[in-house]
Amino acid sequence: MSAIDMLDLFSGGLSFLFTVLILSYLIGDNPLFRIAVYVFVGAASGYVAAVVFWQVLYPLLVLPTLSAIQSASLAQGLYVLMPWLGLILILMKVSSRLSGLARIAMAFLVGAGAAVTLVGALTGTLIPQFNATIDIFGGAVGKGGFELVELLFSGGVVLLGVISTLAYFHFGAHPKADGSMRRLAPVEILAWVGRIFIGITLGVVFAGVYATALTALIERISSLINFIASLFGMF
C-alpha cells in the first residue's frame, strides 16, 4: 500500500466517520452530531483565516507594502497607505476609547457597499427585469399562429403574475363601517391571484431544496458505499 493509498484510505475513513456523525442527526441532536459540527466549524475557521491571510492580506497589503518600500515609490506608498489606514482604524474597535475612529473606515465600507449594491440592483435586476416583462409582448409582433398564442399566453401569465404578486404585497387598506380593515376589491382580487403565484413559486423552491438535499444524500451514501466497497476490494 502506497502512501497515496494510505492517504486516500485515511481521508476516506474520516469522510465516512463524519458522514455517519452528521447522519446521526436523524435520531435527533446528539453528541456525535455536535462533535462533527464543532470539528467542521473549527476546521472551517482555521481554513478561512489561512485563506484570508494568504489570498487577501498577503497579495493585497503585504506584498504591495514591501514592493513600495523596496521601490521607494511615493505613488505605491500612497496607494498602500490607504489600506493600512483603514486597517488601523478598524483595529481601533479593540479599544473602547478609540472605537469611534473605526467609524471612519466602517462608514467608507458601508457607503461603498451600499452604492455598489444599489447600482447593481438597478442596472442588473430591476431595469432588465422590467424590460423583460414588457418585451414578451414585443416579441409577438410580426408572429402569428400558435407561436403568437404561445407568446401572448406566456406574456399574459408573466404580466398577471407580476401584477398579482405586487398586489399581494400592497397593504394599503381603508376602514369599513364595521371597523374592519379591508383592501379595495380589485386589489383584493389581484392579491388572491398573486397568492397563487407565490404559492407555486414557493413550491418550486421547496422542490429544488428537496432535490438538492436528496442529491447530497445520494452522493454521501454513494461515497459510503464506495468507501466500503473499496475497503472490501482492498482487503
Binding site: 423552491v205 429544488g208 432535490a211 438538492t212
Partner: peptide, 8 residues
C-alpha cells in the same frame, strides 16, 4: 446552479 437556486 443547484436545484434549489434555479427558480430564482
Amino acid at each position: 446552479s443547484s436545484a434549489q437556486a434555479t427558480p430564482m
